[in-house]
């Protein structure tokens, strides 16, 4: 018989003792790791959102301009007034147009990067897509204002190519046209497209990267033409990425208040409406109700996407 086996080594200081505790009670470690992010997410993030939602059910006293802290749907009714509904419709249309255009523009780029780019070219791709994200948003937007201005490089280039009339014809289109690109919806659209495009390319590329090459070969092997392979295999498998990207482009456009302020006609977008209502007008309830709109639109959008089977390949 031999004596009981000693542990390989006795605890060496508090670190070792802590490790022992974590080993014996794994939930302690889990709780320690999860507490800070849960606190952040639950209290700071979701909490303030709930507070915002709550205030949208308050209303404002029309005579005194004071907020009446009683729950009512009056503010939401106000949202449906033609001038406010216009803002919502305008913003949603712009967001949809930007999303659609970035999806169309991003797909070939993402596809090339996922399927063909190797080594150095792949690095160049990531750099090219991310570089614009590293510079200041304001600088980019003001730069675009100059590019699109009546005296800017776009006008100059069109005239230099003898296509000045073409530009004027485009600008003469009602609603989306205007005095110059920088004061029209088209200008706003272009800048949105530029600024949010990386947010569409990256998730798309990630989802395309996960489609194995044999999947495409299998499709071709079974007799599919390239177009059929695209429609029945590539697109459905890339759909989660497209949806993820569109969530970014759509919601970022819905909430932005700086780009339409700097480039575009002076008509309000949701973000600008929120900005003015909570600031000078002091109408916090209506501002909150406006802020709820993008959330609702996104929820409806995701529900529809799910319905259409966009997440089947997840």
């Amino acid at each position: 018989m031999s004596a009981a086996l000693e542990p390989a080594h006795p605890p060496r200081g508090p670190g070792d003792r802590l490790t022992g505790l974590f080993w014996r009670r794994p939930w302690v470690l889990l709780a320690l790791l999860l507490a800070p992010p849960l606190l952040w997410l639950g209290v700071v993030y979701v909490g303030s959102l709930v507070a915002l939602l709550w205030q949208s059910f308050y209303s404002i006293d029309e005579f005194s301009g004071m907020v009446v802290p009683e729950l009512t749907l009056k503010t939401y009714a106000e949202l449906l007034r033609p001038s406010n509904a216009d803002v919502i419709l305008r913003t949603a249309t712009m967001a949809a147009a930007v999303t659609l255009a970035s999806a169309v523009l991003a797909f070939p780029i993402a596809y090339y990067a996922a399927r063909y780019a190797k080594g150095r070219w792949k690095a160049a791709f990531y750099l090219g897509v991310m570089l614009p994200l590293w510079s200041s948003y304001l600088v980019k937007v003001y730069a675009w204002k100059l590019i699109l201005a009546k005296e800017g490089i776009v006008t100059w280039a069109f005239e230099g190519l003898g296509a000045g009339n073409l530009l004027n014809a485009v600008l003469a289109i009602p609603v989306i046209g205007g005095n110059s690109l920088s004061t029209s919806y088209m200008g706003t659209f272009l800048v949105f497209l530029y600024v949010w495009l990386p947010f569409m390319i990256l998730p798309m590329q990630a989802s395309l990267e996960r489609v194995p090459a044999t999947m495409l070969e299998a499709s071709s092997d079974l007799g599919a033409r390239p177009g059929q392979t695209f429609r029945h295999v590539i697109l459905p498998l890339a759909m989660p990425g497209v949806i993820a990207g569109s969530i970014f482009t759509f919601s970022l456009t819905l909430g932005d208040y700086i780009i339409p302020q700097i480039v575009g006609s002076s008509r309000l977008f949701i973000g600008q409406a929120v900005y003015t209502l909570q600031g000078t007008a002091g109408n916090i309830p209506l501002a909150a109700a406006f802020a709820v709109v993008p959330i609702l639109i996104m929820l409806v959008y995701l529900a529809v996407a799910r319905r259409l089977g966009a997440f089947d390949a997840l």
């Binding site: 194995p212 044999t214 999947m215 070969e217 299998a218 499709s219 092997d221 079974l222 007799g223 599919a224 033409r225 059929q228 029945h232 295999v233 459905p236 498998l237 089977g309 089947d312 390949a313």
Partner: peptide, 25 residues
């Protein structure tokens, strides 16, 4: 026609649609 090493079944389709794929296209 090929039976691939990793099978390369289309994950977003049912088994029936997978099998019918060659006829669909």
């Amino acid at each position: 026609n090929t039976v691939f090493q990793d099978y390369a079944l289309f994950p977003h389709m049912t088994v029936r649609d997978n099998v019918a794929y060659g006829l669909m296209v």
